[in-house]
Design a protein around this nucleic acid. Structure first.
Lengths: 248, 248
DNA sequence: CTACACCCTGACGTTGCGTTAGGGTCAAGA
DNA sequence: TCTTGACCCTAACGCAACGTCAGGGTGTAG
């Protein structure tokens, strides 16, 4: 009727140390101790442990689990709903990462070194500088960006639209700042992270030419209106613009 | 041309403390220090930081990243391939978790308390004890388990088949052990975790009646052959068998 | 000359245990 | 009865990847 740590460990598939830990923090305590001080778990302790493992499996922290189990008035439903959202986010993120890895691997298959392809894949500075010169014609890279963007659904695009608008307004508002202004750096950083998050796990553009960065007019918003359908290409182009201007 | 910690922090979207940390462990070091000891990062440092963030984004640890970046002979392709697999596993796991949460929430919608439904959903002891008595007729629960299992594809089933066979052999081999034998406990634990992993994020059955658990014959394998198509139901039933026998 | 924003180096806190270290306990076998 | 060997205990440091003070210097704009 009473289980030792080893038995519980085998049954539940958790380490003895873990049981010690749960005991120490008061999460799962053995019903009693033997004369020699051995932990003796009863069935209700095992059930509690199982509940703990359930919530842990769902990704809750031990502190939260304690809350959930100790306070019967806790809103479990809301907690689960919140958690579902969190899991969905994680899933989306992982899916993006997988796509990023795939693209990286594809680039390697094509015979280019990781250094040449990974960092610049889809955002190759030289390439986009050319395109900037040509006033963003319907190039291959433009198409590629569109294809990448094509994976998004209606709702995605609405959210992205809102986000980008906010960022662009911010940048436009900084049009008269000096090169290297902290706020400009921060805004460009945000834009870059936005690109990364939405279109690629990572890109190096952010660091290209930013040393001499200046925003001298608000061509961003014009550009934005023109290129709205090809959002990714626009951002890449905008970055190339920055780089080109800073070097000219 | 030289960036202070704040500028880099803004650009890259990482905290200053993080930069300190990367410096301390030698992952990203500033090109130089000012007279006053200020960290001054150059462009190549920023590129390195960006590479670090790329791999970090993919979930690599800082130690691994150091390996990757410092040793040019490192097999990046293999690392990426390995990582792709890891990400896929994570994704699958999260998808299972989401389904588990959904089932839990459904159970709550139906008016049952979390305690009543969550822990026993699909593996209700009382229910399965009944079924065990009826020699596993085509009950609702049986059907429900089949439906759950229906979500698996061909390859899944093959892997599951191999796994279950191994576990069943193990249990069969322990047919003459005494109640509470550690190896029996461990084997039952494995079986339970197998159920959890494949069919539900968690279930409590594992702990039901195990106190007096004994394996007295090898009816598992018979049962196995009979019920192969309804694997989940079989496991649930087998557990109920255990419980029923131990109480009879 | 004084704010005030920015920089530095410790150094402890966090989460969830893993991992020795040093030392009792208990049932079985010689 | 003594000795294995498998278990049990507590204490305490270690790890990842930083967050978060604490205490104190720097640099520049007004």
């Amino acid at each position: 009727m009473a289980y030792t740590v080893k038995a519980v460990s085998d049954l539940a598939g958790v380490s003895i140390r873990t049981l010690h830990h749960y005991d120490a923090i008061g999460l799962v305590r053995p019903r009693e101790r033997s004369e020699a001080g051995y932990r003796l778990y009863g069935r209700s302790d095992l059930e509690r442990l199982q509940q703990v493992l359930f919530f842990k499996e769902l990704g809750f922290g031990l502190g939260e689990i304690k809350e959930i189990l100790d306070r019967p008035d806790f809103d479990r439903r809301q907690a689960l709903l919140d958690h579902r959202e969190l899991l969905t986010h994680r899933k989306d993120r992982i899916e993006r990462l997988i796509r990023a890895v795939d693209r990286t691997l594809e680039g390697m298959e094509e015979g280019n070194s990781v250094e040449e392809r990974v960092w610049f894949d889809g955002f190759d500075a030289a390439q986009y500088e050319e395109e900037a010169r040509q006033r963003w014609g319907h190039t291959a890279a433009y198409k590629e960006s569109r294809e990448r963007a094509a994976g998004y659904g209606q709702a995605d695009w609405e959210a992205i639209g809102a986000e980008q608008t906010a960022i662009l307004r911010e940048i436009a508002a900084l049009a008269d700042r000096k090169p290297g202004d902290p706020e400009v750096l921060a805004a460009v950083g945000r834009m870059h992270r936005f690109i990364n998050e939405r279109f690629y796990a990572c890109s190096l553009e952010m660091f290209r030419g930013l040393g001499d960065l200046a925003v001298s007019d608000s061509r961003f918003t014009e550009t934005y209106e023109k290129l709205r359908p090809g959002l990714a290409a626009f951002y890449a182009t905008a970055v190339a613009e920055y780089c080109g201007r800073s070097r000219a």
